[in-house]
Structures are given as C-alpha cells and as structure tokens.
C-alpha cells in the first residue's frame, strides 16, 4: 500500500500488484513498517479497553500475580516447604518468576486469539495481518510494568538490592519472553483461523508450559544431565535470568541461555513464514 497522501500534490501513487502468491511468500516487512502506527493504535485500544467496566480496573494487573503468589506461597512454601535458590523467602522467589510468566502467558493467549477476535477487520480491510499478534503481545507490557512496582516494594521489604547488571539483563530477558510468545502465537493464531481447536488447547498448553518452567520450584531440582534439554524451554531461561538479575541467585547467563535464545528465534522465524504463508487465506477461512 502507498504512503499517506499528507501532501496530495507532491504525492505520487504507488503501483500495487495484486496476484496469487505461491510458495513461501516474501515476508513483506515493508508493509508492516508502513502500518507501524496501526500497531500502536491496536495496542492502545487493547490497553484502553482491557479493564473497562471492571470495578477494580488496573488493580487486576497487580492482583493476578499477587494472588497467584499467595496461593503458591501457601501450597509450595508453607505446606510442601519447597527449597528456593539461595535460601530466598518463598514469596519473592515465586513472584519474581510470576512476573515474566504472566507477561508471557497473557501475550500468548491474547495473540493466539488476535486474528479470530478481529474477524471483521480481516474480512473487510487490508492491512498486514502481522499487526494483530504483534500488538497483542506488546499489550501485556503495561500490566507487567504495574506489577513490577510491587516487586520493587517486596525487594525493599526483604532488603534485596539488585546489581547494576539488572539494567541490561531485565530488558534482555523480557525481550526473550516476548520473542518466544510472539513466535508461538504466530503459529497458533494462524492455525486458529482454520481450526478453532486452538482455543480449547491453549489453556492446557499454558498450564503444561508453566509446570515446565521453574516458577514454583527452583531449576536446581533438575539434575545436571537434563539441564540442556530443560533449557530448550526459553521461558526457563527467562525465569532463571530474572532471578539472577534481580535477586542475585543462580548462575549468570551461560551457554544454556544461548540455547534458549536460539530456540526462541527458531520459533519466531518459522512462525513468521508459516503466518505469511497462511495469511492469504485468512479472509476466506476465518
């Protein structure tokens, strides 16, 4: 599509060729760039609407991880007496992990449904469809930021000061969580257009994935020979990274995190191609 006709006089129309695309269509990131403002608008819409007509409003962004943390604390901290890294108090141990996990699962959930929940946009107008999952994935960042304030409060309470490396490490691990969520969501959202089974499978997928991620427990309970396989789950890398950066426990990023990042990139790139390849049938199938 063309650039805007901001100055109609100086504007020269772009020629667009509409024809069947075959094979792996080009990624057409140029179009995505032209529509970058739409990503922003969709993101803004999702955030504006998210807690409309709720009594507690944005407090939910805090309540969700805090309540989960309390339940975990009761079950795994008090009853099961799960061992934490470096003898940390269980509440902050689990809450630090619940933050990136909350971001990830929310991103995965909303982005996987982003195409089907915006059906009328897809059947009525052209725009790069990638806009929808991208905006959905980014939509969780605000909630993350709100919930992060609570973490800062908890760290002050427990007297934990993160090292200076947290400044670069936290954004980096956040990026890894987002890339993973986007990659998986690209696959699932495209499949969901044709097979609504995704909607039913998604809660289970989130749940299993959460058990495979060291949120309620420490990844040290995984024996040495399984660590490489365990790090195939990029979210394990993210959670351990968060704990290392903010709480100063566990190992600094090593080769295992490279495996996590590699997997995340692989999912993202393959997801992009799959999504682009399916994109041309979205309007007919949805």
């Amino acid at each position: 599509m063309s650039e805007s006709s901001l100055s109609s006089s100086a504007y020269t129309p772009t020629t667009v060729y509409i024809q069947p695309t075959t094979g792996l269509a080009a990624l057409n990131l140029r179009d995505l760039w032209l529509y970058r403002e739409l990503v922003w608008f969709m993101l803004w819409r999702d955030i504006k609407v998210r807690y409309k007509q709720t009594a507690l409003g944005a407090a939910w962004a805090i309540l969700q991880p805090v309540l989960t943390m309390l339940v975990f604390n009761f079950l795994f901290g008090n009853i099961a007496r799960m061992e934490t890294d470096g003898g940390l108090p269980y509440p902050i141990f689990s809450y630090t992990a619940l933050l990136p996990w909350g971001l990830f699962s929310m991103a995965l959930n909303s982005a996987s449904r982003s195409l089907t929940s915006n059906q009328n946009m897809i059947t009525k107008t052209y725009f790069p469809r990638l806009v929808l999952p991208i905006a959905s994935v980014l939509g969780g960042l605000l909630d993350f930021a709100i919930a992060f304030v609570v973490l800062i409060g908890m760290m002050t309470y427990y007297g934990i000061t993160p090292g200076i490396h947290a400044l670069w490490a936290v954004p980096l691990f956040l990026l890894l969580a987002i890339v993973t969520a986007l990659g998986v969501a690209l696959w699932l959202s495209a499949i969901n257009v044709q097979y609504r089974d995704v909607g039913y499978a998604l809660p289970f997928l989130s749940q299993f994935w959460m058990f495979l991620t060291p949120i309620a427990y420490s990844s040290r309970v995984i024996s040495e020979q399984w660590q490489v396989i365990y790090s195939l789950n990029p979210m394990a890398g993210v959670v351990n990274g968060f704990r290392w950066a903010l709480l100063g426990v566990g190992n600094p990023p090593n080769l295992l995190i490279a495996v996590s990042a590699g997997i995340a990139l692989l999912i993202l790139v393959s997801g992009l191609f799959y999504f682009r390849n399916m994109e041309r049938t979205f309007a007919d199938m949805i």
Binding site: Q19, T125, R280
Partner: peptide
Amino acid sequence: VTEPTRGMVTVRGRVGSLLEVGTG
C-alpha cells in the same frame, strides 16, 4: 482483502473502500 486464485490486478494508488465502514 483476499487474493485472486488466478490472474493479476495492477492498481495505481491507495484503494479506500466503503465496505470497511466502522471496521475495528
């Protein structure tokens, strides 16, 4: 919105459509 199965269309300029009334 959808691709043709065969053939080609060449369009010069931005296409706006009023099928999209109220979309989004």
